[in-house]
Write a protein that binds this DNA or RNA. Structure first.
Lengths: 204, 204
DNA sequence: GTCTATACATCGATAGAC
DNA sequence: GTCTATCGATGTATAGAC
């Protein structure tokens, strides 16, 4: 039993909780220490500063998300199945990680440097030099399977449609009475509506 | 000349700058005072607390945005022209207010209460009880002008596609080398691609 | 490795003179 | 209305005993 690593893990999961709930700026080292069942001094002993602790937590959470997404769609070649799988998995992964979006947006909005670096690292680790889905969309266009849209814009549209309800959740649920963004019913509807819109929009 | 009001305006515009740049949490009353050319004490004399100053700034900036959007599309009845106008105006208004999005997202992610209240107020002031575009989409469906999609999902898709490139701007510009989200060229492409995708997706 | 105690900085807010 | 000076709370980080 390695006491060192055990404490480190307790700190990391407590820090993930607090950072996700409060955001980096409002997160307090005291609260992280409390939830980990230790004191502030030990936090700095293990991670030196709040900044470094945050970096470590951010890296782990975001890497998990993107690796799961890449895993889910990497072997699909048929464009229709690929789009369906992308939408389904993106929405499910986000639905399971609602607070992670705030986390990523907070980070992006401080310049996005960490996020860009992390994405590069993740792609490098997977041996990717291009975005797989972009290449597959372009291939489908060349083979005449879908209309000649701009692949980059299609990807931006896909992600935007999937992610927006989660970003604007309080407003969406208030403006559209009856919608519960996390309900199984809404998630299923959302997947279907996005796929139908996209597919009708680009099929030949 | 009313000195009272003049100082108040200087404070409000300085506060808007700082809040937009730093966000509510990281904004400092000292910096707002400096930019307004006064001292901290006077800030509290006029607005009592940071919270109230923030509320006032938030209300003004967000109201302006939505009022401009509503003004731009309220008289359009034809569904095709309406969708085109919504996309064009939404993208232009956001492009002119890049930092406002962070502002709104920050606010949403602390619960969204202020945003919901503000939207209700804005709609009340305009005498609206429903969302105009939702009603017009449903009317177009009933009249058989577009396919019977879910109007709420269509609106979510529209906004998501318009707003996403601005939210994820640093990532988008890095992943898609060559894209400059704020360039006239990209904005024009984006408007066209969104409209074409939507219209092909729902036209009969 | 883990603790207590504390240094040191910063921030929002206010008191009080003018 | 506007200023200077300062309070009180809170935050990160560290020193030093065990």
């Amino acid at each position: 039993m390695n006491y060192n690593t055990e404490t480190e893990q307790k700190i990391l999961s407590a820090a993930a909780e607090v950072f996700l709930e409060k955001g980096k700026g409002a997160a307090r080292m005291q609260e992280i220490a409390d939830r980990a069942g230790i004191n502030k001094a030990l936090l700095h002993y293990y991670f030196r500063s709040k900044e470094r602790l945050y970096d470590e937590v951010f890296k782990r959470l975001v890497s998990d998300f993107f690796n799961e997404l890449f895993d889910a769609i990497q072997d699909i070649e048929d464009i229709q199945l690929l789009l369906k799988a992308f939408i389904d998995n993106y929405i499910d992964l986000i639905a399971q990680r609602q607070r992670l979006i705030r986390f990523i947006i907070w980070e992006i909005e401080t310049g996005g440097g960490k996020m860009v670096e992390l994405l590069k690292t993740i792609m490098q680790e997977r041996g990717l030099t291009t975005i797989p889905i972009e290449v597959k969309i372009q291939k489908a266009i060349q083979e005449g399977k879908i209309a000649p849209v701009d692949s980059r814009h299609l990807i931006l549209s896909l992600i935007g449609m999937c992610i927006y309800p989660f970003i604007a959740r309080p407003i969406v649920e208030n403006i559209f009475q009856g919608i519960q963004v996390t309900s199984t019913e809404f998630l299923q509807q959302r997947k279907t509506e996005i796929f139908n819109l996209i597919w009708n929009g680009i099929k030949k």
